[in-house]
Design a protein around this nucleic acid. Structure first.
Lengths: 348, 348
DNA sequence: TTTATTTTATAAAACCGTTTCGAAAATGAC
DNA sequence: GTCATTTTCGAAACGGTTTTATAAAATAAA
């Protein structure tokens, strides 16, 4: 029924081990027999079966992609894009990506992605904040790891990261250059390193370009919860009570920006005429918001693709030297941060 | 190093075949030896290796998920959600989902998802419109198929479908009940069966609840291209030139609704005061639009989950009787279709 | 009770479709 | 003709499942 390496060998008149050798591009195959075998392969339309190969080589040619369950409940499928990027890049290299999720409070002794137990993956990509315990567990199994958009300082791990610092720096610089002096930093979860870095970029811009006494803790609203439009709304409402009120809002991501703009509108403030807003991430619908949202573009698919390339490289080369790759961002100026009116500029 | 079935057998003092028997829950195992073996399994933390199992059983315990490449370029990750639904449902049943995409003009002789060639999946889910040729090919390989959000009338295939007809019917009925008499049907690709069905639902509602001469071809704008905000914008602009202009717009999906509302706004028409809009799909950001978009909710994850359950069932039971499952929709009334003002009601 | 027969539980062997490795065969150089 | 060097081969893994054989236990027949 299904054609095996044996059939190919028979038709080509060679041993199956020889077929295997040409299949795996090994040395020392006489060109003539190589062609003979290739011909037989083509004629029979032969394709080696993955599980057989996997058994013999102890490689699955799959890679696992694990993320925190709670990210799925988020408004914007940020990590989904990362996954897609990884998935399609992996295919190019002959790998498939298996998706799994873990809870924040997960216990390796009780529940684990099955692909880890069944040796069904050769390496895993961990996306976003994941519990330490799973990192520890996977390392014990000697399965290579690459983190995406997450770092753990006490683990030496390969990682693909967003240039949050610079992204935020550029965004806030832009606001400063437009004359803004009271720039609020709106609502993100202080637990995620990426958010911290965005905050650092904000501070740096104000420190470098503004005057230092403009670095005002009151203008910053970091939260415990995962960022969301709701958080953005609440956060903005709170920040609007400041006197004088902020003239610009740099939000920790686009989801927060949505809530932020909603709050501004509810307070009868016009964007961008009265207040400037810049988000982060560049999600699809930012373009269609009213006004179209200025933001810091994150190359989500590229993050995933890079992680895929990296884990595959590690798998194939047993690389041991740890390296972190930082993917740049791009400031996307649309309408939500338009130039300030003269009146505002001299307001304070 | 890695613990195999042999180790378990040795420790339990039985033959490995016996271990295999309890692993696979077969009959005729003395309870006492069963427990003994289970104990050994637990103590050694043994997990059968997938590729070994796969080789022996000729099953991969993977399922393939194929969709049209062009859907990835679409604004809203509709099918991505379907994929996620399928993926997580599959995990519950011990399967993993492998993602692949095919071009519209793809040729099975040249390029094929590798998992098909390498017997790496036991069945596949095809999402959205896919070329006939791939369906034909997969059937030849005797690999079970389930379609999601697609139907091909000349193939008898299992399918999971959206109740587009009823969804559209309810939405348009709602508009009619609000007093609208000139309801436009805005911009979708006439090639996708789902769009056709939504159109049918629209016609049915007007036919049943309206008067028949309100069924006016001029109010309908179907396109060749895949639906998008741009299409929605163009389509709406065109429909607005009608005299008298439509008072309500039923768009073929939410992406189109975005463009539609943008066009309305550009023509200084207020939503919902001057014009009502209802979309379809219920994408994430519809809730955050201004005004929040009324729409017909499609349970995307549920579509995927159902497809996963179905394909797994077919794989395991060799079911042969074809069945189509239709998943209901839900009319979500938000603000974009609010009641009409009295003035408009009597306008014609 | 003894013997034959069936049932049940376990063991042993064959198989799934590859890769790998040591040995054999072919080739070439001297 | 001998010795190296290529090239090819055969058999043994890899880690499970499945089929078949066998021993032990249970049941039925004599």
């Amino acid at each position: 029924m299904t054609v095996t390496i044996k059939d190919v060998a028979r038709r080509a008149g060679v041993a199956q081990s020889t077929v295997s050798l040409v299949l795996n591009q090994k040395e020392n195959i006489h060109e003539q027999t190589r062609l003979k075998i290739l011909k037989a392969i083509k004629e029979l339309n032969y394709h080696p079966r993955r599980s057989a190969r996997g058994l013999a080589t102890r490689k699955s040619n799959n890679i696992g992609f694990i993320l925190n369950t709670q990210f799925f409940t988020q408004t914007e499928p940020f990590y989904t894009k990362v996954f897609l990027g990884a998935s399609f890049e992996a295919i190019k290299h002959g790998y498939y990506v298996l998706l799994a999720s873990v809870d924040d409070n997960f216990d390796p002794k009780k529940s684990l992605p099955n692909f880890l137990l069944e040796r069904h993956v050769d390496g895993v990509v961990l996306a976003g904040r994941v519990p330490d315990s799973i990192i520890t567990y996977i390392r014990q199994q000697d399965i290579p790891i690459v983190l995406v958009d997450y770092r753990v300082d006490h683990f030496a791990t390969h990682a693909v990261l967003i240039d949050n610092l610079n992204g935020a720096y550029e965004a806030v610089s832009h606001l400063i250059n437009q004359g803004h002096r009271r720039i609020a930093f709106v609502g993100g979860s202080c637990h995620h390193p990426s958010i911290q870095e965005r905050y650092d970029g904000y501070k740096k811009a104000i420190g470098v370009l503004g005057s230092h006494n403009e670095l005002n803790d009151k203008l910053v609203d970091l939260r415990e919860e995962e960022s969301s439009p709701q958080i953005g709304f609440d956060s903005t409402k709170k920040l609007l009570s400041l006197k004088p009120r902020p003239t610009a809002f740099f939000t920790v991501n686009d989801a927060v920006a949505i809530g932020c703009i909603k709050a501004l509108r509810q307070s009868s403030l016009r964007v961008p005429e009265d207040v400037a807003v810049i988000g982060f991430d560049d999600v699809e619908w930012g373009l269609h918001m009213d006004p179209p949202l200025s933001t810091v573009r994150v190359f989500k698919e590229e993050l995933g693709a890079t992680a895929a390339r990296k884990i595959i490289h590690i798998i194939q080369n047993k690389t041991t030297v740890i390296e972190k790759t930082i993917i740049g961002t791009e400031l996307v100026i649309r309408e939500s941060c338009g130039g300030m009116r003269t009146k505002d500029k001299y307001e304070f």
